[in-house]
Write a protein that binds this DNA or RNA. Structure first.
Ligand SMILES: [Mn+2]
Ligand SMILES: [Mn+2]
Ligand SMILES: [Zn+2]
Ligand SMILES: [Zn+2]
Lengths: 154, 154
DNA sequence: ATACTATATTATAATCGTTATTAAATTATA
DNA sequence: TATAATTTAATAACGATTATAATATAGTAT
């Protein structure tokens, strides 16, 4: 929940470098940039969005590098894949247990603090990953685009 | 949770026909078969799996029909899309609120009864969909394929 | 039943996000 | 250096799904 604060402390490039090395990831300019973006912005970007952002500073980057890097980060378990929509992968450097809500109007993905979750019938199972994904409308969009409130879930 | 019982009552073709008509869906042999399969088997099949199963009885069916039909069922809200893995869509005619666990060894998708879920910070949001997806190993696979138990989550 | 209309189905091409391939560039090591 | 290992970029390939367009089927009116 520390990481879910709106104002988490920014990581310096040096801290990112240390973190990557600690996780057995060799350093490159792209890797530093990509992880620094994920950890400091925390907007759950898609690979495409990351590509566009990094390209501003390092125009020679290719989409393949973004995909390669994200796959590496997933393997090394320093990012998690968030897929609220089946067709779009989003990446999150926040690893603590939390849920996600995607606003169907603006596309933003919000972090959710999960107070309690109790499940039945998991005796004998081994759990590796848990994902809680909601779809809805954010307060901003509900106001400005005045959608009607009519969903069922609380 | 009625629907999560291992032995839910089977729907007759006549009941399926009624249900489709009630939901503004015109009847066809394929639609009856596909929904009957989803509601009576409840194995969360992929489109591909549905195609293979229906083909046994109706060999002329095309994959496009399965996709068309599933898309229609989603629009009419008589099935829900389950996507534990980002790249594979699975379909579920059980609409009551429950979670899913995919066994990474055998691929089976299990229903989970959710006892309680409390979320923070949803004031002002409008929620349309909630999905809880776990990945892990089922008791069967833990036994027969003797994986080591080492996951962190409870 | 016939004609007419609307819908369902099929085959196929197209799309989209991602992965695989491979050669060139970069970095690490001897 | 030389040499080996890794990273990157361009491109092709892939798998799931959607779009297109032609044909088949079903519904309705005469
Ligand atoms: Mn997050
Ligand atoms: Mn289910
Ligand atoms: Zn919004
Ligand atoms: Zn299993």
């Amino acid at each position: 929940m520390d990481h879910l604060e709106k104002r988490a402390k920014r990581w310096s490039l040096e801290e990112v470098r240390e973190y990557l090395l600690q996780h057995d990831i060799r350093i490159s300019a792209y890797r530093l940039k990509i992880f620094e973006y994920l950890i400091n912005e925390r907007t759950h970007p898609t690979a495409e969005e990351i590509y566009e952002v990094i390209k501003r500073d390092l125009p020679a980057i290719s989409p393949a590098t973004v995909y390669n890097t994200l796959r590496l980060f997933l393997e090394k378990k320093i990012v998690q894949l968030v897929s609220v929509e089946k067709n779009e992968g989003r990446y999150d450097a926040t690893l603590s247990w939390h849920g996600h809500l995607k606003c169907l109007a603006c596309g933003k993905v919000f972090d959710l603090h999960i107070e309690t979750l109790k499940l039945d019938g998991l005796e004998g199972f081994e759990i590796f990953e848990k994902h809680l994904n909601l779809k809805g409308l954010c307060p901003e969009c509900l106001k400005t685009k005045n959608f009607k409130r009519e969903g069922k879930h609380g």
